[in-house]
């Protein structure tokens, strides 16, 4: 595990509070800066828990989680939220957007919580429009209500939101599972283009091994994570 890892986990143990039957252990896992990594795993393999740990929405019971050189344990709850907003853009499987907001509202939302990212945008609105264009969204889409977009378009808006203000890390949790095959390829092409442009680190989770060829590295969940289930 090199010092240059933008994401580093060591001897991490975590148990969801109130759910004694499920806990995960991550002996060692790291992602280098600028690397694109695909995490392969079925549902229930602890993917979501791992992402929550990296994002700092939950804290490890023991061990170290270092993101961008900062040990998350040293941050207070409030500064971890701020830190996440600055460092990480997130794309979920689906329902990424606030349906009642416009596309622009949704894309600009993280800047509200991340002043540094906001500072990197000279004109946030123009930037949002530029990202939409680069991601192949129709012209003038920023004014539309998020709920009126197709699922594929919504996922692209989510990528635009995750990338605005150039956070160093992009985390995508099964972003393509709600898309059909052609849309998947198309979506990944556009996302990878933008990741290259911004030189972001990409950590994507999927259950689909066919996606692996695009990534620098493919890691199976079972290689890095041990799950303990107690039979109740």
């Amino acid at each position: 595990m090199g010092d240059s890892g933008i994401i580093e986990l060591k001897d991490v143990r975590f148990r969801w509070p109130g759910r004694t039957s499920f806990s995960i252990a991550v002996p060692e896992f790291s992602v280098a800066s600028g690397e694109t990594v695909l995490l392969l795993g079925e549902s229930g393999s602890g993917k979501s828990t791992l992402l929550s740990l990296i994002c700092g929405t939950v804290l490890a019971d023991s061990g170290v989680v270092v993101v961008g050189g900062t040990d998350l344990k040293t941050l207070s709850g409030w500064s971890r939220d701020r830190f996440r907003a600055e460092q990480i853009g997130v794309v979920f499987q689906q329902f990424n957007l606030l349906p009642f907001g416009s596309v622009a509202d949704n894309i600009l939302l993280p800047l509200r919580f991340a002043p540094d990212r906001k500072g990197r945008c000279t004109d946030a609105r123009r930037e949002a429009e530029g990202l939409c264009r680069a991601l192949g969204l129709p012209e003038g889409v920023v004014e539309s209500k998020a709920a009126t977009l197709s699922v594929g378009q919504q996922q692209r808006v989510a990528v635009a939101r995750a990338l605005i203000g150039q956070p160093p890390i992009l985390i995508a949790d099964e972003p393509t599972s709600s898309l059909d095959e052609t849309a998947q390829a198309n979506f990944l092409d556009l996302m990878f283009d933008q990741v290259k442009v911004q030189a972001s680190t990409l950590l994507m989770v999927s259950h689909d091994p066919r996606l692996g060829e695009r990534f620098d590295r493919v890691v199976r969940m079972s290689e890095i994570v041990t799950i303990e289930r107690e039979v109740a």
Binding site: G77, A85, F92, F95, L98, P110, F113
Partner: peptide, 16 residues
């Protein structure tokens, strides 16, 4: 809860 998860992912604190 979905909406709140989005806000949380964007960096909103539980206080927000």
């Amino acid at each position: 809860r979905r909406e709140m998860a989005i806000f949380r992912a964007m960096g909103a604190s539980p206080m927000a």
